[in-house]
Design a protein around this nucleic acid. Structure first.
Length: 851
DNA sequence: GCCACTG
DNA sequence: CAGTGGCAACGCGGT
DNA sequence: ACCGCG
């Protein structure tokens, strides 16, 4: 039995990895050779090179590059390997600063002439502006992630080869959207949220829920059949309760399947467990059959209380965060703290019940029986039925990603339970998330006996291969725990099959490749290394040798187009590894990367407006302060100008935004007016701040009422989460009135609400007046007052973000702190349109409203 | 994060 | 030269 | 009149 299982695991996966690599390489070659019109190609590439000499080990050629109208040339050596997989080129020349650059390129076989030359992004360094100029002019194309690069801004760290030179940073914009989106993410956990994915409203949910009805209907059908549901099991076979059944695993795909033969569940972010119930004895078994009952006491108790007789239930145990989304990190915390009271077991399959094996029974029937079995479990208890929907999988995946969930699992309704990985279960992820073997670590530079970054690898064709590092995502505590776990298994040599490169080995302490880390990433670089990898936790339920690369099976291969980059100027980003949000391990570099990633979304809301900042150069734990006026030493990317005797701070682009990050800005608060007309606001903000203990529904209701009242005044409004507890309702107006008028208008609206529902709303800041009410703060609309910007981070635990949402989403299960720096990019990537589309164009008049 | 001021 | 404090401001209610 | 709070 066991050998067969192993063969099934290793065979296809290993093959697919190799095939993936091959096609990736081919895609690039195809692009290079594709007979595009010369004009088009030269715009993207803009240089020619000729092969000069070519021997068995090295390839030499001249690189001619037009820089600032001047043709320059270099001798280029490629080598030492001629392996087609090694596409790196290094420039060796004495006479030009570009010697420090490495290139990656593709050379047409046996030809002279044009080809794609791509700057290789690791450890590259430009001592002067030439490379930037070349990139800006499109003379060089730039890749950070090869085929998997997405359009948008990318933050590049440029490390000089020569140690004495200073490190610098560069922002590069890639304007081609590449088809291979990133996959993975977080998980949603309750049935209500499942329902949201169907687009049903809160009212419908409250009325019993379409999903529930669905199940009730199915149950009714089952019950209507001749005998009782349990006895009448098609294909159920009399059998003994198995000791353990190898779990069915889903294959990762890029795009969820559509069609009536599929059903879709939310992908839960926790530990896969099999509940084996044999009378009073309840065991919880991991995917390898280990008994973890003791770690999940509350779950076992919850199952015991069901008094099921005997059953084998497949499911996932999770811990829900405050936002209602399940979190793997929280689960691990709960386990290590020895408490299981917050854990929830989501049951999604039934393999055996009361003397009958259901392995051969079709899934939909198994789920129907499972639902019937769990019919009486209390809502909100520690055992829950994992609901599913029949809707189009692609749409469901999109909604799931927009809600910040990890992804979805699609299952064939008609298939029996099949242990091991198969294609009858498919998973689609919102954020790419994978396990890797920890091969070593770099000690923290900030605290002793703590890990600074992890050196990771995975098994490819049975060999451990370096895949990169994860240098963010550790909380202080976790960094010390990891050190404690890794220090005892230190070894002197790298555990990789091949000798690691200098880059890979820099600062490394090697360890026995035993531990498995779960890592979240945002794609792969051209060299097959991790991009933006963040550590998520240790996978104690997995063996290191099982960590083979898991890449999505593409439905249609998307050939890479040449990204067209625009580079900004180099700048400094000091202390990139400083941890600003210790609870989630978000670093300064991570913050800059976040803003680069959401640049297109946030910039329209923060550019050319006076800014106030909440700065905290030492993170949310250090001393933080507001700053409104410019100061000496802020770079040129941030504008300062004196208006009406005040030194106003503003930015014009992403360079400015990153300069704010460099200055230690944790929150960005723009004024409600534009720089060019500072005295006339074009945004009015209602800040709904609920008292402690108020339900979220009440806040939603409040926001909807604000919207309704504004509608009566013929004003369209927009809503965003605050990143804290409340909501912000924003009204775009024509900049026709002054601040005093705007504030008076907002006060008028809020006071009318407070007057009509004094038990629900107050316009009074006083603590007492706010008891059990929602304080609607209209004072944000005074001159110089500000509200946090859309997409700005908040200086609170979890690195939450203020996020614009559609009014239709508000009726669903979105929470004010639902999105954070980690989950928001996935939402934006899957967004069909901007939730605030049109806000910049509306010219609503409040000067015409009387009263 | 950085400047200005202090001892 | 190392150490340290500031880095917004506005309405409100309480003292 | 002043202070502390958000």
């Amino acid at each position: 039995m066991a050998p067969a299982a192993v063969a099934r695991k290793e065979g296809p996966a290993a093959r697919s990895t190799a095939a993936g690599k091959l096609s990736a390489y081919k895609a690039k070659r195809d692009f290079t050779k594709s007979p595009e019109p010369a004009a088009k190609r030269s715009r993207a590439v803009g240089h020619r090179f000729a092969i000069q000499r070519h021997d068995a080990r090295r390839l030499h050629f001249d690189l001619r590059l037009e820089l600032g109208g001047v043709l320059k040339s270099w001798a280029v050596t490629r080598g030492p390997s001629l392996d087609p997989a090694d596409k790196r080129l290094s420039i060796h020349t004495e006479d030009h600063p570009l010697e420090y650059l490495s290139f990656e390129g593709v050379i047409p076989d046996g030809e002279y002439g044009g080809g794609t030359m791509i700057v290789w992004d690791h450890g590259t360094w430009t001592p002067d502006g030439d490379a930037e100029a070349a990139i800006a002019k499109g003379h060089l194309s730039f890749t950070l992630a090869g085929e998997r690069l997405r359009g948008g801004w990318h933050l590049i760290r440029m490390r000089p080869r020569a140690k004495e030179k200073k490190e610098q940073w560069l922002l590069v914009k890639v304007d081609d959207e590449h088809a291979l989106a990133s996959v993975g993410g977080k998980q949603l956990v309750d049935a209500e949220l499942t329902s949201i994915l169907t687009g049903r409203t809160n009212a419908e949910l409250a009325a019993g829920g379409a999903i529930r009805k669905d199940h009730a209907a199915r149950r009714k059908v089952a019950a209507a059949k001749p005998s009782s549901p349990r006895a009448r099991v098609p294909k159920a076979k009399k059998a003994l309760l198995p000791v353990f059944l190898e779990p069915s695993l889903a294959t990762l795909v890029e795009k969820a399947p559509a069609g009536p033969e599929w059903l879709h569940e939310i992908k839960h972010d926790g530990y896969r467990l099999q509940a084996r119930i044999d009378g009073h004895s309840v065991k919880l078994l991991t995917r390898k059959g280990l008994d973890w009952t003791s770690k999940f006491g509350a779950v076992a108790d919850g199952l015991r209380e069901l008094k099921l007789g005997s059953a084998l239930i497949d499911g996932e145990v999770v811990v829900e965060a405050e936002s209602g989304i399940s979190s793997f990190s929280l689960l691990q915390e709960a386990i290590s703290a020895g408490r299981s009271d917050r854990m929830v077991f989501y049951a999604f399959d039934l393999l055996y019940v009361d003397g009958s094996s259901l392995e051969a029974t079709p899934l939909v029937e198994r789920k129907t029986q499972l639902a019937a079995l769990l019919d009486d479990v209390p809502a909100g208890g520690s055992v829950r039925f994992s609901e599913h929907i029949d809707d189009d999988g692609v749409a469901m995946a999109r909604h799931a990603c927009r809600l910040g969930l990890e992804g979805i699992v699609s299952k064939r309704k008609d298939q029996p339970y099949r242990p091991g990985r198969g294609t009858h279960w498919l998973k689609t992820k919102c954020i790419e998330r994978q396990e890797f073997v920890i091969a070593g670590f770099v000690p923290s530079t900030t605290s002793p006996k703590a890990v600074g970054s992890l050196i990771l690898g995975d098994y490819e064709n049975g060999k451990l291969v370096y895949v990169g590092r994860a240098g963010t995502g550790f909380t202080d505590r976790v960094a010390r725990e990891l050190w404690a776990a890794l220090d005892p298994i230190k070894r002197t040599t790298a555990p990789f099959a091949a000798k690691p490169s200098v880059d890979a080995a820099r600062g490394a302490r090697w360890v026995e490749p035993r531990l498995v880390a779960e890592v979240e990433l945002r794609g792969w670089t051209a060299d097959g290394l991790l991009r933006h990898a963040a550590y998520k936790g240790l996978r104690e339920d997995k063996d290191a040798v099982d960590v083979i690369r898991e890449s999505p099976k593409a439905s249609a291969s998307a050939a890479a187009k040449a990204p067209s980059p625009i580079a900004s100027h180099t700048f400094d980003l000091t202390h990139p590894d400083r941890v600003l949000w210790p609870d989630v391990g978000l670093t300064k570099q991570g913050l800059a990367e976040y803003y680069a990633e959401v640049a297109d979304w946030i910039l329209p809301h923060v550019v050319d407006r006076p800014l106030s900042l909440l700065r905290g150069p030492n993170g949310i734990g250090g001393k933080c302060f507001f700053q409104k006026h410019a100061w000496d030493g802020i770079g040129e990317a941030v504008q300062r100008q004196t208006i009406a005797g005040e030194e106003i701070l503003s930015i014009r682009n992403l360079d400015g935004l990153v300069a704010l990050v460099q200055a230690g800005s944790l929150e960005i608060h723009p004024w409600g007016s534009k720089l060019k007309d500072i005295e006339h606001p074009d945004r009015i903000v209602f800040d709904l701040d609920p008292d402690e203990g108020l339900t979220w529904d009440a806040v939603v209701e409040g926001a909807l009422e604000v919207r309704e009242r504004l509608r009566h005044l013929k004003l369209e409004s927009f809503v965003k989460t605050s990143g804290g507890k409340g909501l912000h309702v924003v009204v775009p107006v024509a900049p026709k009135v002054d601040w005093a008028t705007a504030k008076a208008f907002a006060k008028h609206v809020v006071e009318a609400m407070a007057k009509d529902s004094p038990d629900r709303y107050t316009a009074n800041v006083a603590k007492r007046a706010r008891a059990d009410r929602i304080f609607i703060d209209y004072l944000r609309n005074g001159r110089g007052a500000t509200a946090v910007a859309p997409y700005s981070t908040r200086a609170r635990a979890g690195a939450p973000v203020s996020v614009p949402i559609g009014w239709d989403e508000l009726t669903a299960g979105i929470r004010p702190n639902q999105f954070d720096v980690q989950t928001l990019p996935a939402r934006l990537r899957h967004a069909e349109h901007d939730a605030w589309a049109g806000i910049g164009k509306l010219r609503q008049r409040i000067d015409l409203i009387r009263g």
